[in-house]
Design a protein around this nucleic acid. Structure first.
Length: 542
RNA sequence: GCGCCAGUAGCUCAACGGGAUAGAGCAACGGCCUUCUAAGCCGUAGGUUAGAGGUUCGAGUCCUCUCUGGCGUACCA
């Protein structure tokens, strides 16, 4: 519909010069009585042209050449809106398109040939994934799906660090539990990893090595085993949500391949770093930052900034056109430094899109659960998926704007999972499948020969929703907003349920029944396509 | 103190680079199954969009200030 209007406006701009560089926006009005699409260009131009909006609108309409089989009516309303009403047949034609393209419907090749890297989860292997990581995982994977649907070739990447203080603590935590299992008296420090899984790892080591590790270093077998077991566990948790990564990037390779050293050298050559108090500082003040910051500590160890910059540099070197980072709001303060560093190296940081999502507040029995991996104070992602299933988890984390601080009431989620809107969508899909099964026995086949019969209110409402799908998907993908897909699908399902209630197939005249069945099948395709981007299944029965 | 994100119906949240009468779901109340799945549909009720100013034809949306909450503000990641 929008494309059609774009075209006729373009033709009109041959005669009306002021339309040439005017911004053309077609909005779907909230109220039905304002038409299918509405344009505010006359009001936008009023000031510039020093004329009344109504007058301009009239002139525009007079110069629009349109097909009466497509547009029913054009009118001026309110302060100067131009409202367009489309014919019911034109609106119904979308069915042909959907049924021809099937699972490809809604996908575009707009970004064909472009490569994207989506980095997400990136939790260090110090413990199981928690519900908090769930939001990150689901957002990242869904964004990746969305980008694929608009033509990107996407790599899903997990960045991790198996060195550093936290991992040392982890190794030593396992060591102490190991000694404990061998009957030694130990003093287990408060700031060590308290989780039960530490004991399990220790007990596996006892089984495997007996007491031969008594004098082993914390960072030897203990850390190694812990990392291996925990990573297994993390990958498994992600798999339960249908998430698989193409690449696990170990921070350590940056050191092994000399990328850290090389980067330090470049900063020095560019005179962007200096030594002070035994540490190396980067001149962030010269790069638009608030203050200079340490990139190598006096101990010789780099701070996270240096490897982060080096890591993102590899993404540029790996020739990605788009790099997406999914971070929780606790990391919000770090990425400007990374971007500034990259910019100083001459990279186009516009290609990096950092998605910051706000924290999930977990409530259990009405109380806030504070998550800490170290203190073993958490609800694991596995437990959650076990309780409510992958579909609910994925839908729940997708359904809200990234910027919203979500509340997740576990008690409610477990108890009232039936009331999750995901079931509303899945139910619509299952219903359609059921119709198709039943109706095929009556020898009714979907046909697009008489789409002109689909003129009832509920049919038209549903058709209009279907017409919006392509645009919604593209918009959601380009603006990295998964929740828009949820909103759209809920509206679509609502339109379908109404159609279902008021427009029967069985018992209708043959041509009408066939057209309605085609509409139902088209709806099924779109619901399924939408859910598949969200990573949610579309069951045939419920 | 400073920075980022937020504050919308009893609860959880929408509202597309400012648009017409701020919408859903849940919860509450009242209806609808002898025909394709009642995990559904129809109806009622629920609001000074935290508050105060400002910008303009027009503000939940943009600007300023205040209040409340989350997250930061490291030679931790």
């Amino acid at each position: 519909m929008k494309n059609y209007l774009q075209n006729i406006f373009r033709n009109a701009s041959e005669k009306l010069v002021y339309l040439k560089d005017a911004e053309l926006l077609f909005d779907k009005p909230k109220s039905e009585s304002h038409g299918d699409l509405s344009c505010n260009v006359a009001m936008m131009l009023a000031k510039k042209l020093k004329r009344k909006p109504g007058e301009i609108a009239e002139e525009i309409i007079a110069n629009l050449e349109f097909d009466e089989a497509v547009i029913n009516k054009i009118e001026i309303a309110g302060p100067g809106f131009i409202n367009f009403f489309f014919t019911s047949l034109f609106i119904a034609k979308v069915i042909e398109n959907i049924l021809t393209q099937k699972e490809k419907y809604g996908r575009t090749d707009k970004y064909k040939g472009k490569r994207a890297n989506v980095e997400f989860v990136s939790a260090n292997p110090t413990g199981p994934l928690t519900v908090g990581h769930g939001r990150n995982a689901v957002i990242g994977d869904t964004v990746a799906n969305m980008l694929e649907s608009i033509g990107y070739e996407v790599d899903r990447e997990y960045y991790f660090n198996n060195a550093g203080r936290q991992m040392r603590l982890l190794g030593d935590s396992v060591r102490l539990r190991y000694l404990e299992l061998l009957g030694e008296k130990i003093d287990f420090p408060e700031d060590y990893y308290q989780g039960e899984y530490i004991k399990e790892i220790a007990s596996e080591l006892v089984k495997e090595f007996g007491n031969s590790l008594k004098n082993e270093e914390p960072e030897g077998k203990f850390k190694e085993k812990a990392e291996q077991v925990i990573f297994e566990d993390i990958k498994n948790s992600l798999k339960l949500l249908g998430i698989e990564f193409d690449t696990f990037y170990n921070e350590n390779t940056l050191f092994e391949e000399g990328k850290i050293e090389a980067l330090l050298k470049v900063f020095k050559e560019k005179n962007l770093s200096y030594k002070k108090d035994g540490a190396v500082w980067l001149k962030f003040t010269e790069l638009g930052g608030e203050q200079d910051k340490v990139i190598v500590k006096a101990t010789g160890e780099p701070t996270y900034r240096l490897p982060d910059i080096a890591y993102h540099k590899t993404k540029f070197d790996r020739k990605y056109d788009l790099m997406v980072d999914v971070f929780g709001s606790d990391h919000a303060a770090t990425y400007p430094d990374v971007l500034a560093g990259l910019k100083a190296l001459g990279y186009d940081t516009e290609k990096i899109k950092v998605l910051i999502y706000q924290f999930v507040t977990i409530l259990e029995n009405g109380e806030v659960v504070k998550m800490s991996t170290r203190k073993a104070n958490y609800v694991t992602l596995d437990e959650l998926v076990d309780e409510v299933g992958s579909d609910v988890v994925r839908y729940f984390f997708n359904m809200r704007n990234l910027t919203s601080h979500m509340n997740f009431d576990l008690t409610l989620a477990k108890k009232q999972s039936d009331e999750n809107p995901v079931f509303y969508l899945q139910y619509a899909h299952a219903r359609i499948c059921s119709i198709i099964r039943t109706v095929s026995e009556e020898n009714i086949k979907a046909s697009t020969d008489h789409l002109d019969l689909l003129v009832k209110e509920e049919e038209q409402q549903l058709l209009k929703k279907l017409n919006q799908y392509e645009e919604e998907i593209q918009y959601a993908a380009e603006y990295f907003e998964p929740h828009r897909i949820c909103n759209y699908l809920e509206e679509l399902a609502a339109a379908f349920h109404k159609f279902y209630t008021f427009c029967r197939i069985l018992g209708s005249e043959k041509n009408l029944a066939e057209a309605r069945l085609a509409l139902a099948e088209a709806t099924k395709v779109v619901i399924k396509n939408g859910l598949s981007i969200l990573g949610v299944t579309a069951p045939g029965r419920m």
